[in-house]
Amino acid sequence: MNEERKGLKEKITNSDIWRSMFRHGYENTGRRYTLQVLQNVWLHLHPPRISRHALNFRFTWCMGGITFLMFLVTAVTGVLLMFYYRPTAEYAFHDVQYLEFDIPFGMLLRNMHRWAAHGMVISVMLHMFRVFLTGSYKKPREFNWAVGVILLLVTFFLSFTGYLLPWDQLAFWAVTVGTNMARATPVLGHEGPFAPQDITQSNDVRFALLAGTIVGPSTLLRFYILHCVAVPLLASVLMALHFWRVRKDGGISGPL
């Protein structure tokens, strides 16, 4: 019986179909460990081997990884939320209500999306704090630190654009307050210092952000597109760059 099973197993793992999907076996050798990383698209950004101290939770706090995980969670839950949400002033609020009260697990979905987004803001700030405390921005990682700072802004902007979408009082006024400062941009805002005569409230930088002179239906659409398409794309590109650079700059920093 046992012999038979073994034979069957070998037959399957030696078949053309199996071999086309899995290029290596599962034996406990260094070669297999290396292939496991090199031949897996999800793992191949990792080097095959790293120094032992990079495994230390007390050193890394794992915050960069958690930030990425939170991004993935918001991406998955966000796509699911998009099935139930219409970014128009007539429907937006009621779609969120419908989601909360009528869609199976709709409330849980929305909670996970919102709390993962908040979690991402916390973890990205702590990640930056850790990278600073360990001096990991120093040569040769200067540029990657700059990419990281841009990613921090992108995270804030992702969270901020998403804040408007429920279209309730909290969303409306938080975004109103948050965008009001753009009025005062020097030169480009109509209430800012050195603004030329022809900069008015309907063509200044705040107007470009809001697509209007106050937060309104066109703002909702604009923030929706930014939140669901434009900024996530930008974030993905920058993250790819960020992770690739971590490896190219010599992996996670350590004492030399």
Binding site: V96, W115, Y163, D168, W173, A174, V177, V215
Partner: peptide, 23 residues
């Protein structure tokens, strides 16, 4: 649960009006 207040109303300003916590 994630908060959901009453529908947005440009004529009804809450006091205080606060930006999202990270701002």
């Amino acid at each position: 649960d994630a908060p959901l207040e009453e529908p947005s109303d440009p004529t009804k300003t809450p006091n205080p009006s606060k930006a999202p916590w990270y701002f």
